[in-house]
Every structure is written in C-alpha cells, then in structure tokens.
Simulated scan of single mutants.
Amino acid sequence: MTTSLHTIETPAALIDVQRMQRNIEHMQARMDAFGVTFRPHVKTAKCISVTQAQMAAGARGITVSTLKEAEQFFAAGITDILYAVGISIDKLPRALALCQRGCDLKLIVDNVDTAHALDDFGKTFNATFEVWIEIDTDGHRSGIKPDDETLLTIARILQESGMTMGGVMTHAGSSYDYHTPEALRAIAEQERAGAVKAAQRLREAGFSCPVVSVGSTPTALSAEHLKGVTEVRAGVYALFDLVMHNVGVCALDDIALSVITTVIGHQEEKGWAIVDAGWMAMSRDRGTQKQTHDFGFGQVCTEDGTVLEGYILSGANQEHGILSHAGETDHDIRNRFPIGTRLRILPNHACATGAQHPHYAALAHDNSIDIWPRFYGW
C-alpha cells in the first residue's frame, strides 16, 4: 500500500527511512569496528520492516521485551532472540512452546526464587532453557551486583537443574540521566567493567559464561573500548528521539520518527495553534521535562522536516495538541500556521509514541509512503 506525504491522514506516525537507515548503518559500523556482535533491541518500533533493515546491516540476533515480540519476530524468520525482561513464571509454557518450535530463545534471571522455579518447571516438563544472569551495573533497575554472592548461587542452581548458562547481560539505563561526553564515557565504562567482572567471577568459579552482553543507546555510542564484551544491545538508536537529543547522542536531524499533524484551530490571544495530535498520538511521556531542554510534548517541524526553532507542542489533551512558542506569546500564530497547515512533531520518547499507532507511514526519499504495520501486546 502506498500513498504520499501530502495526502496521508493525520495524525500519523512517520518514519523517515533515509534517517533511519543512516542511524542503523552508523551503529552497526561502530560495533563492527569494536569487533563485537550487535543484537538490536526491537521494542522501540515493534515493526518487522525496521528489524529487517537492522539485520540486513549486520545485526546478529535481536533483543525483545515481550514474548509477543519474540513470537512475532520468530514467525518472521528470526530465531536468535534474547527476552531481556526477567521471566515471569506464568510465561514459561509460552517460552517452552517457542523453543519447541525451533526458536533459540534466551531467558534472563536475577534472583534465586526464579532460578528455583525454572528448576521446578524443567523437572515437571522435561524442559531446559538457555538462561543469562542479569547484572546491575548502575543501580538503575534490575539485576545482581557484580560482586554479590547471589550471582554464584544462581549459577549453581541453573547448572544443577540442567539449564544452559548462556552468559551475563546488563543495561546501564541510568545513562539517560547524563548529557556530557565525559559522563557518558564514564557510565559506559562502568557498564562494561561490571559485566566483565561478573563474567570473570563465574568463570573462576567453574561456570560457563560465553556471552557478556551490555548495552543502551547512550553507552553504545559513547564507549571508548569494549574489552571483555562479546555483544552490545541498543534499541532507540534506529529512530532516536528528543530525550536522546538532550542526552547528547543525536542531532535533531537524526530523529527518524515524527507525528504528522494538521492545524485545526487557534487561540490567538494565547498564541496557540490547535492541532489534531494530542497525547493519544504523542503519548503522555514528558521525558524531556527533567532534562536541560524541555520540549513539552514534542518539537514542531514543517511538513518536510525542517525544525521550527522555539515552537513546541506545549500542551496536549486526548485528541488536541497545543502548539505555541516557548518563552513568548506569538500573536501572529494564526497567520504563521493557517488552518490546514501540516506539520511534523518530533517525540520525546520514540518507544512511547510508536506504541500509540497501529502502523508507521514509511517515508522514502521520493516522498512516497509505504505502510509498515507494528504490533502491540505482551
């Protein structure tokens, strides 16, 4: 199905394919130069076409955040899949079904109770899984500290239960909180060193640990070296967003995802233009609010993607967006953005904005558009 940029109904999630391809190729070239495997996280787009572009560029295997993603991408022909969320015991039958159909699915664990539950499930159903241990290298979220004795306890339970010890993985999510090259290089090194230390402890204790997996978009783009690491994971890099721009790892012109919207009204005394993209189109994510530059609900651009400095989506109701100039009232807003004006809004968080839409309008270099389906659910 094809249409054109100027006729697609708004609001719509738009992927600039040239920008996306440039982002993908840059990241893959960087990982190739480091000599590590690159396993992109596909949760951002949840779209077969985007992932196929990543695989074509040289990615080997993918990372997912839901079993729905694993099932969809396996059905599309990708077999090497890391499910990078601690496994919930009620999902083990689905995970086993995927493995039995030929999926090379890896699970992660970060606590003794889940390790025991895997043991119990394995004995009950004569099942084995490849399991990676999640390491906490920055206190951001989940995982075991690299020097915690629990690391070896979990490895012992997995080994005795017949599970395959695949390796360790970590995610320096706190990298999103930084915005200078020096700080990003430091957190990237902290991530690398912590994962490598955990792997060394496992190996010294006699456990197998073939994979040392690290990654986030900021650390992947900031690491100075990756000694001891075997693979890197990153996801939002393919599309980027305003949070990543504030972190300092992309320019506004690198952001490949936007929402096409139409001006439908004005409040001239307030300096507002009203558009048909509210938070149902943009999401409620206000991730830039706590950063050095607050973009409201998104940065306003012309329909062709030119950034309109100072103009942001400053407010959002369910289906109405409020466009205004940050810091001063534009009393000429009606003439500047007449009824029917079509604009692009760059999002705060690509994952959240993408999740609001059933498909993407994929914009090619000739301004033609293909429709790329995406999926929802767990």
Rank of each mutant, 00 (worst) to 15 (best):
D110C: 01
V259N: 06
I48S: 14
A172D: 05
F129L: 04
I333Y: 09
I255R: 00
G228V: 04
M1T: 13
M244N: 12
A183L: 14
H140S: 15
T217N: 01
V307N: 07
P40K: 04
T3S: 14
E130C: 12
N23V: 02
G139E: 06
F375A: 11
G315V: 08
K106E: 12
F34E: 08
K227E: 15
V232G: 07
I187L: 07
R374E: 11
N126I: 02
G206Y: 11
I255W: 05
V131R: 03
A53S: 12
E319D: 12
Q21L: 10
L221G: 11
H225Q: 15
N348K: 08
F207W: 02
A251W: 09
E182M: 11
T153W: 08
T262S: 09
D254R: 05
L308M: 13
Q267A: 10
V42R: 09
H293A: 10
T217R: 03
D32M: 04
D119S: 00
V263I: 12
G310D: 08
K106A: 12
C351M: 09
G265R: 06
L118W: 00
T79N: 15
T63C: 14
L14K: 06
H140N: 13
L92T: 03
E269Y: 11
S368H: 10
T230F: 05
S161H: 00
H26E: 13
D304Y: 11
A361D: 00
E204I: 12
D254N: 10
E268M: 12
K91S: 05
R156Y: 04
L152D: 01
V109G: 00
A57L: 09
G278H: 08
S258N: 07
Q72P: 05
A29H: 15
L343N: 02
D90T: 13
Q291L: 14
E231W: 02
I264P: 03
I108H: 01
A251Q: 13
E269Q: 14
V263H: 01
F297H: 13
D110K: 02
E303A: 15
A361L: 03
I187Y: 04
Q356I: 06
T180A: 09
V300N: 01
M280Q: 15
V50F: 07
S88D: 15
A220Q: 06
T63P: 03
A117Q: 07
D104K: 13
Q52I: 11
T262W: 03
L5H: 04
A193G: 07
T219Q: 07
A75T: 12
S175W: 05
I108L: 03
D254W: 05
Y376L: 14
W378H: 13
L96S: 01
I78D: 07
D332P: 04
L363I: 09
F129W: 06
A199H: 06
S88G: 14
V236A: 14
